[in-house]
Simulated assay, not measured.
Amino acid sequence: MTTTQRRPEEQGLPFNVFAKACPSRGTLEHVTGRWGALTLGALYEGSLRFNELRRRVDGVSEKMLSQTLHALERDGLVHREAQLTNPPRVDYELTPLGRGVAQRLLSLIRFVEDSMDAVLEARERYDDTRGAR
């Protein structure tokens, strides 16, 4: 494979989420999607079992949570610990990388929550000017 045919990361080039083929796009999608962000935020508080996590992330289906956890585990953000007990016990926790991502996400989440009065006012003005409601 020539230098021009190799992926950017194989050439020592920086990743670029704006480039269509960059693998960082998939990770960004996993992290910033609704269920990924909420799952990472919930796990920031500590290790949780699947059903505890599902209750904490209100509204997520079992299937979506399972898919989200698999994606986050594959990206190295979540660690899955299965214990061979009866019944089996599986705990999920953030990896050091996942903690760093979750910390930044929680800052954004808090900013959004703190800004909701302004957001709701903007929505109302928008809807009033367009006759929506």
Rank of each mutant, 00 (worst) to 15 (best):
N51I: 01
T39H: 05
L77P: 09
Q83E: 15
G76K: 10
L65K: 11
S66A: 11
L53A: 07
G76S: 11
L72P: 09
V57A: 02
E52M: 09
G76P: 10
K63A: 14
R55K: 09
G36M: 09
E81Y: 05
A71V: 02
K63W: 04
N51T: 11
G59Q: 07
S61H: 05
T85L: 15
N86D: 11
V31G: 02
L72C: 04
L77Q: 10
T85F: 01
V78R: 06
L48M: 15
E45W: 01
E73S: 14
E81G: 03
R56E: 13
E45D: 13
S66C: 04
R55Q: 13
G76L: 11
L40P: 10
R56F: 02
D75P: 02
L43T: 04
A82K: 12
A82C: 02
V60K: 03
H79T: 10
A71W: 04
E45S: 13
S66G: 07
R55C: 01
R34M: 06
E81V: 14
L48Y: 12
R80C: 05
E62F: 00
L43I: 04
V78E: 09
H70L: 12
R34Q: 12
L38W: 08
A37R: 12
A82F: 04
G59Y: 08
A71E: 13
E81T: 13
